[in-house]
């Protein structure tokens, strides 16, 4: 591992000042991504600003019935917070289905949103990778791309965003709150994750020294019946092949409201807006669900080893909607 310097921030302004002072610095919360990537030689950070003493761990009510989740709240704590479990069961489930309890005890909510793709070609430090070395090419396009994305891809990058909880959060229109050298910002969740396009090295619209301080999840009664389903080869401790966050509201035997987001298939946590639009006003049955899923996946771009995800994602989406409709949590 490269030599590092380290400092502990006393408060938010201190953290920003410390990080801004050294352009090669990174914030250290749980360390589950950053320490791993520094050791692998992928992260170029030389200075770590430890932000764990900042008072950003709480989960608080918002006036609209939503919740504010502190950026340093640990995944395991948020998953078990009764207000999260009641109001946003999909968020709780997504957290519990991610990683392992040890990692959930370490990883912060803010850090989770900034975790990086598991693409093996990024992590091997050798293969062409436009995230690691812009312009070098993308080894995944014609490589072993079973785990790679089919939505939101570009000819420069098909890396999957690996987060589970981000999938649930994007379904509920969460907003990311940051503080940086230029002051405070609120970034809509969907805007926080950039599509790779021509610049896959740019993953978030975030300035040097800008710190995530929390996540606002707006009040959404529909979320109380939400589900998060995750499908993968082994039964635990694995990133998703496909995952789905779904919530559905039915009024007078038609779909009155619906939220759908998917993981494992997108270059970002994938809000399935086309499917949502297709569903509203339709009868809540498998035929409608299947149609909506087909609409969402119509623009999927597949590679040699991930073509199966088009069908798997549609079946998963149908499954998620059926479970939400039937009030099943898993």
């Amino acid at each position: 591992m490269r030599p590092l310097t380290y400092s502990r921030a006393a408060d938010v302004q201190d953290a920003i000042a410390l990080a801004t002072a050294n352009p090669a610095s990174a914030f250290l919360a749980g360390g589950t991504t950053e320490v791993d990537l520094i050791r692998a030689g992928i992260s170029r950070s030389e200075h770590l600003v430890d932000i764990n003493e900042l008072p950003l761990r709480g989960v608080e009510d918002l006036p609209d019935g939503g919740l504010h989740i502190g950026a340093l709240a640990r995944m395991s704590d948020v998953a078990r917070t009764p207000r999260v479990v009641e109001r946003y069961p999909a968020i709780s489930r997504a957290l519990l289905l991610g990683a392992s309890e040890q990692l959930r005890n370490m990883a912060s909510m803010g850090g989770n949103l900034r975790q990086r793709t598991r693409c093996a070609y990024l992590r091997d430090g050798v293969s062409p990778c436009n995230k690691r070395e812009p312009g070098s090419g993308c080894a995944a396009l014609d490589g072993f791309n079973r785990g790679h994305a089919i939505l939101g891809t570009s000819e420069h990058c098909i890396a999957t965003h690996p987060s589970d909880v981000a999938v649930a959060l994007v379904a509920f229109d969460a907003v990311i709150r940051t503080v940086g050298p230029e002051g405070e910002r609120a970034i809509p969740f969907d805007d926080f994750f950039l599509l790779p396009g021509d610049t896959p090295q740019l993953e978030h619209p975030i300035a040097p020294g800008e710190l995530i301080v929390g996540i606002d999840v707006p009040g959404a009664p529909i979320a109380r019946g939400s589900v998060y389903l995750k499908f993968r080869d082994r039964q635990s401790y694995e990133f998703a092949l496909v995952s789905v966050a779904a919530a559905i509201e039915v009024d007078d035997n038609v779909v009155a409201g619906v939220r759908i987001a998917m993981g494992g298939i997108g270059t970002k946590p994938w809000r399935a807006r086309r499917a949502e639009t297709a569903l509203v006003g339709s009868p809540p049955n498998e035929t409608s669900f299947r149609h909506a899923a087909a609409v969402e996946l119509a623009e999927a771009v597949v590679r040699e080893h991930n073509a199966f995800k088009v069908e798997l994602a549609q079946r998963a989406m149908v499954r998620g909607l059926v479970h939400s409709l039937n009030g099943r949590q898993s």
Partner: peptide
């Protein structure tokens, strides 16, 4: 799986090369 272009294994850690966990 080998990536034949480079002659390197595609899965070289315990997150990608899957062995059973307790739940399996």
């Amino acid at each position: 799986h080998m990536d034949p272009r480079y002659g390197r294994w595609a899965e070289t850690n315990l997150a990608e090369y899957l062995v059973p966990v307790n739940a399996d």
